[in-house]
Design a protein around this nucleic acid. Structure first.
Lengths: 360, 360
DNA sequence: ATGAAAGCGCTAACAC
DNA sequence: GTGTTAGCGCTTTCAT
């Protein structure tokens, strides 16, 4: 690194400012600002000199000062309000987050991750989100009746949700933009497939439908197809974990040893269910056909037998969330999503499709 | 929510400012500021009125403005420069991050996570870190010769590293503060244990010692004990993954079928090694004794047989990192860590201990 | 093409 | 106790 010369030495003991760079290169702050932001017309010669001084001083723009006037930060919050370890275990989040990050980065925005585990963290996170640190927020994996959607709306912060948020009874969100898979349609397809295979006693292992909209929707899809034959006896609720799937499968088998198929609302749960089936000496798909949901490659391709499941483009959904957000933050005058102005910016439901492997 | 009255309606169309609150409650900005920050003496009556108006307006302080004058943000960056999915799979990071977050939150600081996967992301992240968004940084899981330590030092941003960073050949960090386990000592203890069991041909499966200091140190510990009997034939390098551990075990067995013990430098790798041993019909610990490293409960307690391993307090190390950082950020006048001023703030090596289960 | 000056929203002396 | 004032570092008209 070059030693700062007298000409460029900074005044105070702190980090160099625009002023320091201006002084060092013998131009005004405005000019330096123009160079930094690659804007207006500046003589090439001047540009170069300024650049040198910037490098020499190790100048980095203070984004607080910048934010104060531009009201932009080039940073987007990515918020997950779930126990961190659940996030770390489930491949779904890995993919989802990867899609989000890719698109954010491609757009030159800095993704800033916020995890919320405890109730008490909401106020602090709310202040952070409202404090102007970020230009917008992408939220996923919210818990049931999460206060976040309401807080976000009150703050007026542009946001897009991953998965339709389950809202509190009374509260009504003016309009919240989300990206979700066609959970209901996918579930219907899965169950229809089982029906087409001639299965007659089709059970289901659901997600936590008191907690997540996706679980509700997948169960609804199951019911759509089975109608009255969807006896409560054939429905067992679990929690989207492998262990939960295994327990639910066991419960189902104990209650109704005659079932010949099961639609499991997630691949992770399905892998648990398959294990129980194997332990009990039941052949898949001969004795019992199994269909999962998610199509997480690391799981579905390596179960025994490989899992027939409903595919959703998880990474693509992440990217879509980011793109939707930018469509709002890029244009400050853009229409706020509101009931009064419909279609300005609306939620997206992405398609799903059945991937037939060997379990059904 | 109360409807803003004429008295409190904000002037511009944007978010309410201190000024708006002041106007609304008939006091000066300073007073409002005092109330918000719970500082100086303000009449209880006034406090209440201001609070009301704040709630009514949904006022949230603009932290850019605040940062500009206080030079603090109450946010700490937590940076991991590893492929995100590696982070998501390894329980080590989950624990480490949990410790970090707990301590940060307890201190009222907002943890802000930054993942770096690609080379190209460094400049953007550097600008973010240097831009005043955060008061300090906690970095872990750096890649080999990561440019981050150098960047951080140049920026003068207070930082603490998780694990001793491996530095580029030429470059010399003035002094970088880190928290690390006593990897070398732990490895020594593990190998000594095997020796005390009467094992004579003790192999080792190492981590990526070209990438991580911990791998170097654990290998050094192995050599410390075995000295000349540490033949290169008994050493197999892997990459801290389960799969890598399995492959290394196979390679070792092919090369030296006579080994009677193996020190595996991580639990994840050890679980892979145990599987290979089982597949080959070798009994553990009868035929081959195995000792791991990390003591990750979800792994070590559930291997077959349960794994004897070296325990390190991962969560505690995370907390310690945060505490070390605060000791610097809390006191702006605090001594910068520098060779000239030794002991002002130095790295910490935390103890390890052997946990005997059944694999050795 | 470049400079001067105003001001973003807030805190921190300092007066009263 | 409370108000006044002066910036923090930057972008942005508006002159020139």
């Amino acid at each position: 690194m070059t030693q700062p010369t007298a000409r460029t030495r900074r005044l105070n003991g702190l980090r160099p400012t625009l002023e320091d760079v201006a002084r060092g290169s013998g131009v005004s702050k405005s000019t330096v600002s123009r160079v930094i932001n690659g804007e207006g017309k500046v003589r090439a010669e001047v540009v170069e000199r300024v650049r040198e001084v910037v490098a020499e001083l190790g100048y980095v723009p203070n984004s607080a000062a910048r934010q104060l006037v531009t009201r932009r930060n080039n940073a987007i919050a990515v918020v997950a309000s779930q126990p961190q370890n659940r996030l770390f275990i489930d491949p779904f989040f890995d993919l989802h987050l990867r899609g989000i990050r890719k698109e954010l980065v491609a757009h030159g925005a800095q993704p800033v991750l916020l995890f919320l585990e405890e109730e008490e963290e909401y106020p602090r996170v709310g202040d952070f989100l409202g404090g102007g640190h970020v230009d917008g927020a992408l939220l996923f994996s919210l818990r049931a009746c999460d206060p976040l959607p309401g807080m976000i709306e009150r703050l007026g912060l542009p946001a897009v949700f991953g998965g339709r948020p389950l809202v509190r009874g009374g509260e009504t969100l003016r309009e919240c933009v989300y990206v979700d898979a066609d959970n209901r349609g996918g579930a219907r397809e899965a169950v229809r497939h089982l029906v087409s295979l001639g299965r007659e006693r089709i059970a289901t292992i659901t997600g936590p439908y008191d907690q997540e909209a996706s679980a509700v929707d997948r169960l609804d899809g199951y019911r759509d197809v089975l109608l009255d034959s969807a006896s409560p006896e054939l429905i067992e609720r679990a929690d989207y974990t492998r262990q939960g799937g295994a327990e639910a499968m066991a419960a189902l088998l104990d209650r109704r040893p005659d079932i010949d198929a099961v639609f499991v609302a997630s691949d992770l749960m399905a892998s648990g269910a398959l294990q129980v089936l194997r332990e009990r000496g039941l052949r898949v798909p001969d004795d019992i056909a199994v269909v999962g949901f998610d199509d997480l490659a690391p799981i579905a391709e390596h179960t025994d037998p490989p899992l027939t499941t409903v595919h959703q483009d998880i990474e693509g959904m992440g990217r879509l969330m980011a793109r939707l957000l930018f469509s709002r933050t890029d244009d400050p005058g853009a229409p706020e999503p509101s009931a009064a102005e419909p279609g300005a910016l609306s939620s997206v439901v992405t398609p799903t499709r059945l991937v037939a492997r060997h379990s059904a």
